[in-house]
Design a protein around this nucleic acid. Sequence first.
RNA 1: GCCCGGGUGGUGGAAUCGGUAGACACGCAGGACUUAAAAUCCUGUUCGCCGAAAAAGCGAGUGCGGGUUCGAUUCCCGCCCCGGGCACCA
Length: 924
Amino acid sequence: MEYAFRDIERKWQDNWKQSNAYKVHNESSKPKYYVLDMFPYPSGAGLHVGHPLGYIASDIFSRYKRLKGFNVLHPMGYDSFGLPAEQYAIEHGIPPAVSTDANINTFRSQLDKIGFCYDWDREVRTSSPDYYKWTQWIFLQLFDSWFDRQHQKARRISELEAIFGKEGNVSHTCPGDRKLHFNAEAWQAYDNVRQQAILMHYRLAYCGVGEVNWCEALGTVLANDEVINGVSERGGHPVVKKKLRQWYLRITEYAERLLAGLQTVDFSDSMKEMQSNWIGKSFGAEIDFNLVSENQLAAGKQLRVYTTRPDTIFGVDFMVIAPELALVLEITTSAQMDAVGQYLDYVNSRSERERMAEKRISGVFSGAYVQHPFEDRLIPVWISEYVLAGYGTGAIMAVPCGDERDFKFAKHFDIPVTNIIGAHFNGEDANPTKDAVLENSGFLNGLLMRDAILVAIDKLEEMGIGKRQTNYKIRDAAFSRQRYWGEPFPVIWHNETAKTLPEADLPVLLPELSDLKPGPDAQGPLANLPDWVQSNGGIREVNTMPGYAGSSWYFLRYMDPANGQEFCSRKASDYWGQVDLYIGGTEHAVGHLLYSRMWSKALFDLGYIGFDEPFKRLVNQGKIGGDSRLVYRIRGTKQFVSAGFKSQYETDELHVDVSLVDGFNLDMEGFTKWKPDFADATFITEDGVYKCGSRLEKMSKRYFNVVNPDDIVSQYGADTFRMYEMFLGPVEQDKPWDTKGIEGVHRFIKKFWRLFFDAEKGAVFTNTPASDAAWKAFYRMVKKVEEDTSKFSFNTAVSGFMIGVNELTDLKCHSLELLEKLLVVLSPYAPHITEELWSCIGKEGSVLEAEYPVVQVQYLVESTREYPVAINGKTRTTMNLDLGITQDEVEKLVLADQVVIKWLEGKSPKKIIYVKGKMINVVV
RNA sequence: GCCCGGGUGGUGGAAUCGGUAGACACGCAGGACUUAAAAUCCUGUUCGCCGAAAAAGCGAGUGCGGGUUCGAUUCCCGCCCCGGGCACCA
């Protein structure tokens, strides 16, 4: 019987579908395990071989866990709201709902061919009303909540209102407006509009006017993580700062908990670091300096700065404030007014992009001074764009001997530099050390800088001119988009007051709209639907939610996907709990992962779920790159020269479709038929062969280097494809796709098949018992595969299978008692062939229900009778097990392949080193 | 500039709480079976030296240069290179 993988795989895929083999129940006596993939955005391009890498890894792990006795939740769905579908609609006139459905169908058929064990009954689509009803509902919960800083948790707005009625906001500083203070009487005296405006400053989802990232080309605002180097992440269009009324998530309130939570989860170091950099916590002090200026407006005012280095207070040579601060005009003297005005014009003329692209040293003196708090010294106040208005207080104290930027500024404007760190400062460069002993520093003299930080803060606090302050770089996240293809907000505006819709009115359906042109005044397309906008005497919010809204909680919906009453029942989320294993790319480090962590924390605070970190463990799969093929056209001709001779000509490099190239050899006939341009191409070959050049780059249509998994599956089968993707290298690693190596894995699968069936003889499996040698080989393999699988080292696990099957083949082992165990171990990797063989050898049910074999240690220990022994490098004798080692210790020795045992002989401890059954080295 | 991660045969990659470097696979070379091909199987394959060849042996070898150690791909110090992230955050 031949290994007819096409028939086998189709048969079992149909069978699984019909029998609902992967159905998962929320009731089970087994322990639970939740394996989650980052769900895909269903793009029009379909899947290439890079996409399934993580899916295959998670599928293998899910199947493995299932065999080990866990009730495994392993769902899949689609992140189907978002910009690309809308862009596609604008360009091609196809409604997003239609193209999205078509794309999902393509994805589904591609996924099905690979044999995943998803429970499709639990599929979610973020663009489906059944789903986004609950996205809107969670938004309402965030809107109805505020963050209690004292208890570090979200609470209901009604509780805040009660507090305001009793004591005003004395205990709860307003996060949206630090200067807002009122008492109970004042609160009660405010009218409803005023009260609502104040509450808005506290809500976790709020609407406010702020500087946002506006992308003209996309016609929408973007969150900070969607902007990279001043251009949009999608499409690379310019982004400018614009003041707009926008919805935000008050994620800044969760900065501390988002940071602290990283300690409790198993993410890679780099992932944790990216997140903590984004949150950007720093410790320091805010210090008030008394202003001295002839400008009347500055009289009696202070300049408040933020610094992480209060120890350098005696090294301050000038102050710098951001040009955007209102204070600028209050302090500027009449003599400097013109210069400052010109400078502000210059700053306004520069876009965000220009500012970042060329960091010029620029600035202007305000004419004002501040008084140094400890010395009789006036310090000039400058205005410069290198100080950011949005961070700290928007003002700094500049210490040129210790800060590079301050130093360059001082040099540029000839400001004298005070040295407080003695020989650590060479006059040429600033030195940001904390290890210098302070000089010229008054009461701090003689202190080590890192110790002086606290001394200085204590002194400032004592004097009442400064206080400890922790700052975060993270900003509140823009939560509205001026787009169509997203969740509508369940909000109606009555003049300036936002009213939310009751739960019973959800979902607010996204109306059908054929023309997706922007609405007036930078509003989204929904503004073009007057009938929809007018509602109950109010006006609907016409913005929609951003792409990350739906993806911030989808892992909860999988637990209880059909629930019409709740987003997810508490019973379901208590049962499934945290995602035990989350697999996805690093590109979501500061977007999706932060937002979903925040939403989880808010839902936890409000009592809707029982855990506040959604993902216990995160594994980032690498990207699979394309291996492009290049041809070289002699400039101005239709003649192509083989790579070996290209240096002899002036050539233009062109990408050629990888399917037209075998290794590096071009199919010249195929090439001439590929595109009309090349129909009359001629070739300069190397002995009749045209050699292509190659380059590793992103897999993309435009480079003609995309490999479709469907093609691989139809040529080699899903089982081979699955194992080969794993065999390629560690899952976490980026790597190029190379189809050539797949032969090796395919040979392995065929070899495995031949343990059961021979092409001529038919069935070769037997009921005779397996030999000890066969069991030995088998259990060694199981041990390795099991260890590697649980360690996520799938590539070496595949090697383990290859070694094991080679050994069993050499031993001519066809014994059923062994082979059926072998099927179980292999089934997570190659589910189709193992299922087929399971039924061929007459086993009942499915290999899915089987039990994972337990490694029998005695088969591993057997070989450990004698070892040559080396003492201090010299081979001396042979050692038997009677050297005082117990059987127990030997088992450990063998199980670990290499174990150090320490024991006492006389006085000095010695160690034995055992290496792969061959040698023991004794070190005295 | 700062912070991570990484440099191992022709290729993808094994092996690191220090212990036979190169597992497994690709490719390549040779061979068996075959009229032939496909498929399958076997042998060899880090480099250099010695040899007609085989066997055996010798020497070097995990980016470069030092160090610790009986022993270093693994630990320490100093460089070089590649990949990723952040980038006026005071």
